[in-house]
Simulated assay, not measured.
Amino acid sequence: MKLNVIILELSGIVDGIRGNELRREVSNIVADGAKILLLDLKGVNFIDSSGLGALVSAMQMMRNANGKLFVCSVSDQVRMLFELTKMDRIFQIFADQDEFKRQIWTTQ
């Protein structure tokens, strides 16, 4: 069985505007039938509250479509934000794409 894994690489600041773009992208990804989405946050240096809301919306969209959303390559600042807001308990976070591939692609 071939896994339909989509990797989205985000960069810069994830705010309300970028968050809305992310929601649209994830909506299209769900419509295309993808079951696993990896958000690579390697290039993200800041996420504001609306950006966090967009990440949660993205996860809900994937869950509603019986899919899964994962996050990788989180900077120290974003990790701190995730911990403060308890998002680190909601998202499964991988060190990088390689760790994700080792743990998820090989187990599916």
Score class of each variant (00 low, 15 high):
residue 1 M to R: 15
residue 3 L to K: 15
residue 4 N to C: 01
residue 5 V to C: 08
residue 5 V to G: 09
residue 6 I to G: 02
residue 7 I to Y: 00
residue 7 I to M: 09
residue 8 L to N: 11
residue 8 L to M: 06
residue 9 E to P: 13
residue 9 E to T: 11
residue 11 S to W: 06
residue 12 G to S: 05
residue 13 I to N: 10
residue 13 I to T: 12
residue 13 I to D: 06
residue 14 V to S: 10
residue 16 G to V: 04
residue 18 R to H: 09
residue 20 N to P: 08
residue 21 E to T: 05
residue 22 L to D: 02
residue 23 R to I: 04
residue 23 R to T: 07
residue 23 R to M: 04
residue 26 V to N: 01
residue 26 V to G: 03
residue 27 S to V: 02
residue 29 I to D: 05
residue 30 V to Y: 01
residue 30 V to C: 00
residue 30 V to Q: 01
residue 31 A to C: 02
residue 31 A to I: 01
residue 31 A to P: 01
residue 32 D to E: 14
residue 33 G to Q: 02
residue 34 A to W: 04
residue 35 K to E: 02
residue 35 K to C: 09
residue 35 K to Y: 03
residue 36 I to L: 11
residue 38 L to R: 02
residue 39 L to A: 00
residue 39 L to K: 01
residue 41 L to M: 13
residue 41 L to Q: 02
residue 41 L to E: 06
residue 42 K to L: 02
residue 42 K to P: 00
residue 42 K to S: 13
residue 43 G to N: 11
residue 43 G to E: 10
residue 44 V to E: 10
residue 44 V to Y: 03
residue 45 N to A: 05
residue 46 F to E: 04
residue 46 F to A: 13
residue 46 F to V: 14
residue 47 I to A: 10
residue 48 D to V: 14
residue 49 S to C: 13
residue 49 S to T: 13
residue 50 S to N: 12
residue 50 S to D: 12
residue 50 S to E: 07
residue 51 G to P: 15
residue 51 G to Y: 12
residue 52 L to T: 07
residue 52 L to F: 03
residue 52 L to G: 11
residue 53 G to V: 10
residue 53 G to P: 09
residue 53 G to E: 08
residue 54 A to F: 08
residue 55 L to E: 01
residue 56 V to I: 13
residue 56 V to T: 07
residue 56 V to R: 01
residue 56 V to K: 03
residue 57 S to F: 02
residue 58 A to Y: 00
residue 58 A to Q: 00
residue 59 M to D: 08
residue 59 M to N: 15
residue 59 M to T: 03
residue 61 M to P: 15
residue 62 M to F: 01
residue 62 M to I: 01
residue 64 N to S: 13
residue 65 A to S: 15
residue 66 N to C: 06
residue 68 K to E: 14
residue 68 K to I: 02
residue 68 K to C: 07
residue 70 F to P: 15
residue 71 V to R: 02
residue 72 C to I: 02
residue 73 S to N: 12
residue 73 S to K: 09
residue 75 S to Y: 00
residue 75 S to D: 00
residue 75 S to Q: 07
residue 77 Q to E: 11
residue 79 R to M: 15
residue 80 M to L: 10
residue 80 M to I: 06
residue 81 L to Q: 07
residue 81 L to R: 11
residue 81 L to I: 14
residue 81 L to Y: 01
residue 81 L to V: 15
residue 82 F to W: 05
residue 82 F to L: 07
residue 82 F to M: 12
residue 83 E to V: 03
residue 84 L to K: 15
residue 85 T to G: 09
residue 87 M to S: 11
residue 87 M to N: 10
residue 89 R to T: 12
residue 89 R to K: 12
residue 89 R to C: 06
residue 91 F to D: 03
residue 93 I to W: 01
residue 94 F to D: 00
residue 95 A to R: 14
residue 95 A to H: 14
residue 96 D to G: 09
residue 96 D to I: 00
residue 96 D to K: 04
residue 96 D to F: 00
residue 96 D to L: 07
residue 98 D to W: 00
residue 99 E to K: 08
residue 100 F to S: 14
residue 100 F to W: 09
residue 101 K to T: 14
residue 102 R to V: 15
residue 104 I to K: 11
residue 105 W to H: 09
residue 105 W to V: 15
residue 107 T to D: 10
residue 107 T to N: 13
residue 108 Q to S: 08
residue 108 Q to P: 06
residue 108 Q to L: 06
